[in-house]
Amino acid sequence: MKKVLEIKDIGKTFTLSKKQQKLEKTKTNKKVAVDHLSFDAYEGEIFGLLGPNGAGKTTTLRIISTLIKADYGDVLVDGKSVKNEAGEVRKKIGFLTSELKLEDFFTPNYLFDFFSTLHGISLEEKEKQKKKLFDRFGIGEFAEVKVANLSTGMKQKLSLAISLVHNPNIIIFDEPTNGLDVITAKVVTDFLKELRSEGKTIIISTHIFSLVEKICDRVGIIINGHMVACDDLKTMTAEKNLEDVFFDIYSQEVGDK
């Protein structure tokens, strides 16, 4: 399989404010979010980043998406460096976070057109992609309804559609089923599988074991910014289920420190 994503020894340290220090119950004003982290992702696979809250999953995804810069190391997306060719990388990736909220005043139609224009998509391509995604998620009948009047599930499906306006080959999804009802969560996971079958590469971050077991081909376990395990899901869960594997590693890692 073709390697499309190379995360090469990246690291990121944040400076904490006094308030954050209080919340984190720490006396130091530095927090290492990602520490010498490396992994690869291949064409046509779903890679799951598994870890507890604060492990560094979101930071890693933000570095890959060019939203933030790594202190050291680099990420190559289809051979393009996030450090030196961020603009090119942005054309190749779709990024979606469950924290995303769309502006209430716009309709799905308008938002899709807006983001298509920013991505420089031709009119023909845009209409084709819009039809495909709107039909897939059942957005078509709500195309002219303001976002404010859409259900939470429909908003999430619209967010997903918008992040894919430019038909990217690499899709980065931070907590894809967070806050979704079971039906919408199923629609989203089924769609991610469909994208994989189309040869797309999908990177998700999650702390839900069942989601990883259901859709991921490979999994990386992050604890305290370190990639402590990274393998095929089948290999990793050959002897124990994923939850047991995770907690074995977790006790070993946290116990070690």
Binding site: S65, T66, L67, G87, R90, K91, I93, G94, F95, L96, T97, E99, L100, K101, L102, E103, F115, L118, H119, G120, S159, I162, S163
Partner: peptide, 14 residues
Amino acid sequence: ERGTIATLLVTPIK
């Protein structure tokens, strides 16, 4: 506040 800035910033817009 809405988080829409991230979606804008991952587009190729400068």
